[in-house]
Design a binder for these strands. Structure first.
Lengths: 154, 154
DNA sequence: GGATATTGATCAGTATGCTGACTATCAGTA
DNA sequence: TACTGATAGTCAGCATACTGATCAATATCC
């Protein structure tokens, strides 16, 4: 019988599980308390000042109902701000704070270190190949989840 | 600046996200309501009758606090049973029910189909290579998460 | 044998993710 | 302009995952 641990879905879950643990560990060692999800959101807000929540969700493939809580926590930590949009009264414009910028700057080495640690069993070439295959599989399956990746629209 | 979407951690999250969506979709199409996590637990209980919860958690790399809820739901659906152990009065012995066996049997084609769909962007050779690299990275990082994989002990 | 340490299970609390519903608003059209 | 449909954000509810604590029972050590 085929072992459960040999199925792609199970390997996906397990690798993600380790990736999150490594990220949290490295970031905690650096003295910060930020989840992978919060980090990605904050970095994307910094790169796209004033964007709204739906756009942010699309850029990092989060569900729009998940983004609400993530931003709540970024705001609560003083790392980001949520403002009413002047163009569309339904939308909220997101901005990173000075504190958020400082945090991103100081946390970067830990984040990069985490990426290395989670691939530590692989050679550099294998790491590259793993990322290439993941990107390819993800591109083909993008529309299959409720929260697909969406590039910036015109 | 390095794009967030190019980091291994982000790719891991995204692939897992798609894998879960595909699994749930295929299983729902087959007329069942079972999560990937519940499926793995049930299949492992079937393969190891009478095992306790900690052992089960180790075999599929779940946190022991997570397993409680998962089994609650399997029991509630009538697919598994939780009995007091005679050897160790702290432990619970897990068994699959007839209904659980039937469900596993009927759900297998959907589960296998899901594994194919989540790799549909890759050639057969690439799919194999992705799985090999994931297994290797996971093996090296096994101890880094709170819920490592644990083989059956003597 | 009795103190101590460890272990199996559960619980409270927090953070993703999702489904589905809802409100407010905007956009397009008859 | 009034109607219709789509969109931004939020909420309730459920299912993983994890941290850290607790309780009961077992193992270990002096």
């Amino acid at each position: 019988m085929k072992d459960n641990n040999d199925m792609p879905g199970h390997l996906a879950r397990r690798f993600q599980q380790i990736a999150v643990a490594v990220f949290l560990g490295e970031v905690a060692d650096a003295g910060f308390d930020l989840t992978p999800v919060q980090y990605a959101a904050l970095a994307t807000i910094k790169a796209n000042p004033g964007l709204d929540q739906v756009t942010l969700a699309g850029l990092i493939a989060y569900d729009r109902t998940t983004i609400t809580g993530v931003i709540d926590r970024l705001v609560q930590k003083g790392l980001a701000e949520r403002r009413a949009s002047s163009r569309d009264r339904r939308a909220r414009e997101l901005e990173i704070t000075e504190e958020g910028r400082r945090t991103l700057r100081k946390i970067t080495p830990a984040v990069e270190s985490a990426q290395r640690v989670m691939l530590r069993g692989l050679s550099a070439k294998e790491g590259e190949e793993l990322m290439r295959l993941l990107r390819k599989a993800i591109a083909a399956g993008n529309e299959l989840s409720r929260a697909p990746l969406r590039g910036v629209q015109a």
